[in-house]
């Protein structure tokens, strides 16, 4: 696919299976943010899943087959934006490793990897900034997923974006670098442990006076929300894309 010089770059939204099925609003919020930033957005209809469930459970051959499909679907685009650190990390960090014995596919995986960004990383890279909007939540804690912190390394960019839009309502809490205990299938296989880790996370968030939890990863959010519902904690859970889409973009970041 070639883009005409006059046209803004074309972004593929890799929506992730969790956003697709559990929180479609996050998908629409992401599209809104990308269009606000001056990009054309397409949602490739044949995308499925990044392949983490089989990959993290040792089904590497299956993960490789899934990865090949996503690479084919995503490679025509200028950018691939993912509203999830763990799925973005899978594509940008792990896909090239999956094809260590296959030079052709490794090259294709690398090209896709180099164009793939976690949402906050992409927005920050475009110089987008936000101010509080009418629906911007108050007393909010930003839970950074381990994949955003240690794979896409986009946690500081997300912090920056949220700082602008939440200002003094962004509440720092203890031990933000500790895992919330989601870990994909870990949360079901080791549920007691996962629940303990999640409860500890919610304890520190509540102790900081926060009433809303925002995160770039829906997996962490659903796990924490499920715990909060069971434990009757008065907490709201929102995806980073939803919070940013509700904020005021500080300038119409039309690309030159």
């Amino acid at each position: 696919m070639t883009t005409e010089p006059a046209q803004p770059p074309l972004v593929a939204l890799f929506v992730t299976c969790l956003v697709n099925s559990q929180r479609p609003a996050v998908g629409f919020a992401t599209v809104k943010l990308l269009e606000q930033a001056g990009f054309r957005v397409e949602v490739p209809p044949d995308q499925t899943c990044c392949g983490q469930p089989p990959y993290n459970n040792g089904l590497t051959d299956e993960a490789r087959r899934i990865a090949k499909l996503q690479i084919q679907v995503l490679e025509p685009y200028d950018w691939i934006v993912v509203p999830s650190g763990s799925c973005a990390g899978m594509i940008s960090v792990h896909y090239p490793h999956l094809f260590e014995n296959d030079a052709h596919w490794q090259e294709r995986a690398r090209r896709v990897a180099s164009k793939t960004r976690e949402l906050a990383a992409f927005l920050a890279q475009q110089g987008v900034r936000f101010a509080p909007g009418p629906d911007t939540p108050t007393a909010t804690a930003h839970h950074t997923s381990c994949s955003c912190r240690r794979e896409t390394r986009s946690h500081t960019q997300a912090d920056g974006l949220l700082q602008d839009c939440l200002q003094d309502q962004l509440k720092p809490f203890a031990e933000p670098e500790v895992c919330c205990g989601f870990g994909g299938t870990f949360s079901a296989k080791f549920d007691a442990l996962s629940a303990r880790m999640g409860s500890q996370k919610l304890d520190s968030i509540e102790a900081a006076g926060a009433r809303t939890v925002v995160s770039a990863d829906l997996g962490c959010l659903l796990h924490l929300q499920g715990l909060a519902l069971r434990q009757q904690r008065d907490l709201q859970f929102r995806h980073l894309a939803e919070v940013l889409a509700d904020a005021e973009p500080q300038r119409e970041n039309k690309r030159p």
């Binding site: 479609p24 659903l222 929300q225 499920g226």
Partner: peptide
């Protein structure tokens, strides 16, 4: 066992 299953608010997926 230890958490609720949060419900998806929409009846159809994003795509």
């Amino acid at each position: 066992r230890q958490r609720e299953l949060p419900a998806a608010p929409d009846a159809t997926p994003f795509l």
